[in-house]
Structures are given as C-alpha cells and as structure tokens.
C-alpha cells in the first residue's frame, strides 16, 4: 500500500457566518489539492462556528442544500470531511460531519454524544445521532468519523474499528480550559485529548486523526493542537496550539497492516461477548432482569445500595 497525504485545516470559523466559512472551505480545499493531499479534514462545525445557541436553526442546512452540493462538487479526485448544522426532514438539528468524495456526499455522521454539563449546553440546541457506521472511501481504506465528545465514550472508537475503519477521524471544537503549570503542554484539555488519541490509535491499531479548531467564540478559546497518530500510538503530526493553519503529513498505510499483524488486538476482539454482556446490563438497568452483580438491597436498575443515613 502506498502513502496518503493528509491535510488538517486547523481554522477559526466565524461564528454564524456560513457564507464566509464556506468560502474559506473552498479556498482550503484548493490549497490542499495543490499540496497533493488525498484527504482534508475540517473541524467540528467548521462551516458555522461552535457557540451558536439560537443561531443553530438559522445556519442549518439540509443534505440537499445547494451550498453543500457545491462544496461536495469541489472534491472531485479527493476526499474531505466537513462539519455543519444538519437539518433533517423532520426539522431536527444535528451536529454533523460529512465525508465528501469525488463530487458527492459519501457518508454523514451525526454527533452521538452531546455534552450538556460544565461549559457545554449542546443538548438544549441539538438532537443526538442514532447510528454509528464506518464508511468505505475512495482512499482504499475504511474511515471512522466521529465528532468531539463522541470520543469521550470508549465504545465509539472500538465500534468504528470493528466495523472496518482503519483511519479514525475525530473533528472537534474543544474549548481549552484548566491552565495548569503541571501539564505537559500547560493545558489540561490538551493533555487529556493527547492521551485519548494515543490510546485509541494503539488499541484499535488504526491511524487516528484529530482536527480541532482554534479561535474564540464568546468566552471560550479553542486550542487547536490537531494531531495524526500512527497505529503504534506514535504521533506523526502535532500541529501547534492556538495557531491557525493547514497542516499536512504523509502517512504510510502499510503501517496499519504491520501493526495489526504484530499486535492482533482487533483479531482477538470478542464482539459476541461484548454484545452479550451489554445485553445483560441493559436488561438489568431497565429492571427487566435480576441484577446478579448488584449489591444486596439495590433498587431496580441500580448497582449500588443506598448508604445508611447517618
């Protein structure tokens, strides 16, 4: 297998300025094409900005929106992952990431996990996706696309890899926080993500692409630090924190086979075991089966018994 040139568009989208962001996407697509990239990845909500609140409905696009069609048209001979607010036919709004290839929309992933805690309020404004699929691509390998918080749930990279993804792509709008001098890069958020990406690459023996935006929406600053991690867990590209730019790297697709032969973790996965135990846990949590692992005295669906009141 040959080498693939990846381009990561670590951009600062203008909040709510769909037209302006579309122009920027077209320009960067052209730039990536000129640089010989086979795949360009844009960050979460790169077409709209992140902190939209009630603007979400105003910048939403259906998948047949001519602006999206035009952007897809610009991908002949290459692949792009772009992200936007998708409006479904029944008028739900999703945070979506689409794989555009050879002029068409090849695959759409709707963000599954919408953080609604701490500084996040996504569930108020968006609907959560209901399915997770790896997708084949013109690149000759399976892709697994996920959005930001999706990767804070272990099952997502695991399912994508089992479903045939060899290149996992996470597009993010990750707000930087927890500035502590004790972190490796001075930013708690960055340390966490860096650990996650290396771990997923190693455990799924896949390439992992993390494309995070930069810039400022209201109070929050997005920290960039986009990365490409090889199946061995080694970083092959680490973009700078906070700087805007188009960052490219060549990856050797043969590394996937090499790693999977040397470390056959996926071969040894036990999906039938996982699905059986998940099935049991789901039944128990729904109170439909006796919970064999619960403490004595637990209520239906709970694993822990209440502490005696003091």
């Amino acid at each position: 297998m040959n080498s693939l040139r990846l381009a990561l568009a670590q951009i600062a989208p203008e909040l709510g300025e769909l037209g302006q962001n579309l122009e920027r996407h077209h320009a960067l697509l052209g730039e990536a094409r000129g640089a010989g990239a086979g795949l360009i990845v844009f960050p979460e909500l790169g077409l709209t900005g992140y902190l939209l609140q009630d603007l979400a409905a105003e910048v939403a696009m259906r998948l047949d929106d001519p602006r999206l069609t035009r952007l897809a048209k610009a991908t002949s001979g290459m692949s792009a992952v772009v992200s936007f607010v998708e409006e479904s036919a029944d008028h739900r709004l999703f945070i979506s990431a689409a794989l555009l290839e050879d002029g068409a929309i090849r695959h759409v992933h709707r963000k599954l996990y919408l953080p609604t805690y701490g500084l996040f309020d996504e569930r108020r404004f968006f609907a959560a996706g209901d399915s997770l699929r790896a997708t084949p691509s013109r690149l000759g390998i399976g892709l697994g696309i996920a959005v930001c918080e999706d990767f804070w749930h272990l099952s997502v990279p695991a399912l994508l890899a089992l479903d045939g993804a060899q290149l996992l792509i996470n597009v993010s709008s990750s707000p930087g926080r927890d500035l502590a001098a004790t972190n490796e890069v001075g930013l708690g958020t960055a340390s966490s993500w860096r650990s996650l990406m290396r771990t997923y690459a190693q455990l799924t023996t896949s390439f992992v692409v993390f494309c995070n935006r930069v810039g400022v929406d209201e109070s929050i600053s997005f920290w960039g630090g986009s990365e490409v991690i090889a199946p061995s867990g080694q970083a092959v590209l680490s973009a700078p924190l906070y700087d805007e730019g188009l960052f490219t790297v060549d990856i050797a697709l043969a590394d996937i086979r090499r790693e999977r032969i040397a470390l056959p973790l996926l071969r040894d996965e036990r999906p039938e075991l996982v699905v059986r135990e998940f099935g049991r846990i789901v039944s128990e949590r729904a109170g439909l089966a006796d919970d064999t692992t619960a403490e004595a005295g637990s209520g239906p669906g709970l694993d822990s018994a209440p502490e005696p009141a003091r």
């Binding site: 930087g176 001075g186 400022v216 600053s221 924190l241 906070y242």
Partner: peptide
C-alpha cells in the same frame, strides 16, 4: 501556578477576537 505562555496566548486571542467581532 499556570503556564503563563498559554495564558498570554489565550488572553491575546480573546482580546483580538472580542474587538474584531
């Protein structure tokens, strides 16, 4: 104690972003 380089970068981007918007 914080990483002052990161803090300065964030605050500078914040100031520029607020003014520009």
């Amino acid at each position: 104690a914080i990483d002052t380089d990161v803090a300065r970068r964030v605050m500078a981007d914040f100031i520029r972003g607020q003014l520009r918007q």
